[in-house]
Write a protein that binds this DNA or RNA. Sequence first.
DNA 1: CGTTCTGTTGACCCACTTCAAGGGTAGTGG
DNA 2: CCACTACCCTTGAAGTGGGTCAACAGAACG
Lengths: 237, 237
Amino acid sequence: MAYFDASNPSQGASFAHSAAPVFSSETSSFSAFGAKAAQYDTHSVVYYEGDPSKRLYELVKGSVMLYKLLPDGRRQVVEVLRPGDIFGLAGGDEYDCTAETLTEAEVNEIDLKQVERSNELQRTLSTCLTNQMRVLHEHAVLLGRKSAVERVASFLMHLVPARGGIGCVGPDNEEQDGFDLHLHMTRQEIADYLGLTIETVSRVVSDLKRRGVIRVDKADKIHLNKVCSLCQMTGMH
Amino acid sequence: MAYFDASNPSQGASFAHSAAPVFSSETSSFSAFGAKAAQYDTHSVVYYEGDPSKRLYELVKGSVMLYKLLPDGRRQVVEVLRPGDIFGLAGGDEYDCTAETLTEAEVNEIDLKQVERSNELQRTLSTCLTNQMRVLHEHAVLLGRKSAVERVASFLMHLVPARGGIGCVGPDNEEQDGFDLHLHMTRQEIADYLGLTIETVSRVVSDLKRRGVIRVDKADKIHLNKVCSLCQMTGMH
DNA sequence: CGTTCTGTTGACCCACTTCAAGGGTAGTGG
DNA sequence: CCACTACCCTTGAAGTGGGTCAACAGAACG
């Protein structure tokens, strides 16, 4: 079950090497507050669950996941972040999750004390947290109530902009409702995000392929042949 | 599977009757901002998923759950709120969940426009949201990675104050580590919170009883015989 | 051209769901 | 006070979706 027998998360999974970030100078909603911009390599850890929380982070470019580990090594990826998302808030003095990059990533880092002071930051914070909450609510439905196929379909649909949501406009063009997407995640990471095993994810993907819903160019390069029919499989229609 | 075949959430489950709230005049962190205090009966709906979001709510007394429904009637309870928690933030113009009381409840209601203006409210908001996020993260682990026994054990442990967390102090008294608790939830509600069926919840509870870990006085009145041994069953030790 | 890592596929198994029946308990009304 | 009803909960028997175990295929890399 456990894909590695980690007993001490801080010593870390072999797939995640803590790279020393390289600082750059991009702009964002943090930059006016003396935030430092930092670059991270793929699969490097920004912080570990249990580390003392000192900084707040804003993802500027790339992709970051937050995950928690159970003592026996079971892992749950609780969030997959996109540019604009904020992470590192714990509500205590320790981070409640490990933050690890999925791609090369650019991150703005700001001292928590700075955040305390600024009204403007508090404001962006609460809107940002509200959005993340809504995503977490929907993910709870996925984890608690959806079948394996529905989970994978929902996962793929989330990667298609402006489709599958409440205000879904339908296909631009009836006859060619396709979409290309790049996953940036291994099967293991997808499985840990969807509450499944790597084998089940692989099987579902193969099944979708067999049924002509998707085309798999490379393991992480997938073409959706018909977005609408995939959307029908999410359990939400 | 579906315990009722709701197709339109707004027309509503038979177990939830929208009661007109009775207003009172309690105090809270909202009261300085012209918030109205309202009383709700047990199992009454504060708002439905999809309703236009106009107000923000603060739970003062009692218990409220937030849930989402899939079109075929599957339900996932995404949060169980306690006094002090804030709800009603959607990050859009519609509520993303239905809010329903589990007990008689007292709620402070405040206009969203008010919240926009006040820096102080924004501040309490972001700390409150941060705490709820941490709870949601942990619940994602439960839904995605824990067995039925671990889920029920975790659920019960969350109802024991100051135990089972990171800073768990252990039993006050080695030899009598018991605790009485009142659930305020039906088996169906617990099942929908834990991502299980009502039968599985019932079976697990019976099993814990048989093993002498708990004593069931009434369906919703449970005595934990040994908190520590229950804690060992949460998957987190 | 081996080595290593990731992904795929098959066979089997089991934890949980589904289906079905029955028991408890609270509320209601005669 | 008891019968009737309506939930809610429990328990059993059977079915199944996804997990586990194991073998292998493909790509990446030195």
